[in-house]
Design a protein around this nucleic acid. Sequence first.
DNA 1: GATAATATTATACTATAGTCACTGACTAGA
DNA 2: TCTAGTCAGTGACTATAGTATAATATTATC
Lengths: 201, 201
Amino acid sequence: MAKTKMTKRKIQALNTRQKIFDTALQLFNKKGYDRVTVDDVCKKAGISKGTFYNYFKSKDQIIIEEFLKIDHYYQEMLPEINSKESYLERMKTFARLSLKYISEQGAPTVRIAYYSQLSPSIKTSPIVSPKRPLYQMAERLAREAQENGELRGDIPSEEIANTVIRAMRGIIYEWCLHNGKFDLEEAGEELVQILVHGLLP
Amino acid sequence: MAKTKMTKRKIQALNTRQKIFDTALQLFNKKGYDRVTVDDVCKKAGISKGTFYNYFKSKDQIIIEEFLKIDHYYQEMLPEINSKESYLERMKTFARLSLKYISEQGAPTVRIAYYSQLSPSIKTSPIVSPKRPLYQMAERLAREAQENGELRGDIPSEEIANTVIRAMRGIIYEWCLHNGKFDLEEAGEELVQILVHGLLP
DNA sequence: GATAATATTATACTATAGTCACTGACTAGA
DNA sequence: TCTAGTCAGTGACTATAGTATAATATTATC
């Protein structure tokens, strides 16, 4: 951080950006995303519309940015994950903590995040970038579990990670459709249970 | 069908509706959903905007309606599904045929369908209605498989159906994000494989 | 067949996300 | 310290989904 010299301009820019971000989230939380116009945000933040779009490509970028903070959170998960003896347990903990975090963000926020990723104006979605800590971590956990003989070795670890993440995403998508009416963590627990043990008698 | 008397008006209305529907889909396919305005559709179909909104709540209703035609398709699947001896095979066939149908609809269409379901203006999404043939059928197949000892019996069949559908939805969601760049049926095959047999060695 | 009721259509309008050309303050190099 | 160039900031403008209202065509009733 702070690699380049901090000129007045840059400080001002960061402040303005932050003010827009905070104001927007505050309004979204109070009135709901779709009941808040960009003009509302600008007025409250005391800036012009042009400035808003100077810092954010679109209204939903605010939500995306908030949503993707989960990627920092993965670091904090590590101690709890590594505290588990079994690698299978580690994977389960990873899934549980991820869903817990998403659950805490609240269905409205996550819904907008998932919604905007499908928007016609978006060409490639950041949430499926393989560079995300989410993928890195899931793959590593799967690989370690395989190396220790706790998971079958005939499927590449990347594919296992992919499959688990996709399945979790299906739950999240549906959780959004139901506006958070069911327990996300519980549903996740069950899914992972089935993924691991299968449905055979 | 055709329960009420077909007055001139009603015939006219149906024709108009169909013309709007066909024209819209044709334009969407040619230029892409977001490159086509409602006014374009109206102009091409030779009707006014008011007429469009008389028949369709919103622009994306066209896509939803097209997408939900899959619910009719489940009937046609039955022979192929029932031709399988094993109930597990039937479930797999069901999943495969569903994904095949969706794959054939094309990523752009499905993307809009999934997108619009998350729109802030929608309160309850039709695609997660438990009344849908999709759910009915998945539950029945799971139940029959259980009754014949081909699936574990400690999970209610509804839950199994739910889990499988959610997981499939996760794949579809991601397929949309990737604009159909991977093979949906193949990914589905693999997922069902894992769901059924699990990830244990 | 005149007329009231209603279904259908046309158009002007509203709301709001996002764009663009411009301004003037700030920075950096001489 | 002067000056060229950059960048934060502005607000009028555009595009387009959706609405409200007025007009017209069709049917039902007498």
